[in-house]
């Protein structure tokens, strides 16, 4: 189990690293939200899965199995809670009139775009 755990933890930490780098580099609030809200979620879920597997490595008893389930419970809690917080903060920012950074200045467009527009 231990090698799988090492691989999972490394991938998870790498995702968290890329999230932090994006968090520092992106130009405005909304794009920063993309990198920190998502990469961190996937990173945490992968890291916690790896740790739960590593916990089973010392011998499969009932107690250690329950501890692994608890670690997975945290991962599931995070999976449900993190998008909610992301949505709440983004919505609050949008309602308090923080302008999104765009290239052409039109921040809200209908989707899918009209036929004439794409020509």
């Amino acid at each position: 189990m231990a090698p799988v755990a090492v691989v999972l933890i490394s991938i998870g930490v790498f995702f968290m690293f890329s999230g932090t780098i994006g968090f520092l580099r992106f130009p405005d609030f909304f794009t920063r939200m993309h990198s920190t809200g998502k990469s961190d979620t996937l990173g945490i879920v992968l890291t916690l899965t790896g740790l739960a597997l590593y916990n089973l490595d010392h011998g499969l008893t009932l107690a250690s199995f329950l501890v692994s389930l608890k670690i997975m419970f945290i991962a599931i809690f995070w999976f449900a809670g993190s998008p909610t917080v992301t949505h709440a903060i983004t919505r609050a920012a949008f309602k308090s009139k923080i302008e999104p950074w765009t290239k052409d200045g039109r921040s809200v467009i209908d989707w899918p775009p009209d036929k004439e527009e794409t020509k």
Binding site: M16, G19, T20, F23, F29, R32, M33, T36, G37, D40, G43, I44, V85, I89, A92, A93, I98
Partner: peptide
């Protein structure tokens, strides 16, 4: 902005 600070604290929390 204030929102940047909030998500900064959240990122530290994760």
């Amino acid at each position: 902005t204030d929102m940047d600070r909030i998500i900064g604290v959240g990122a530290v929390g994760t």
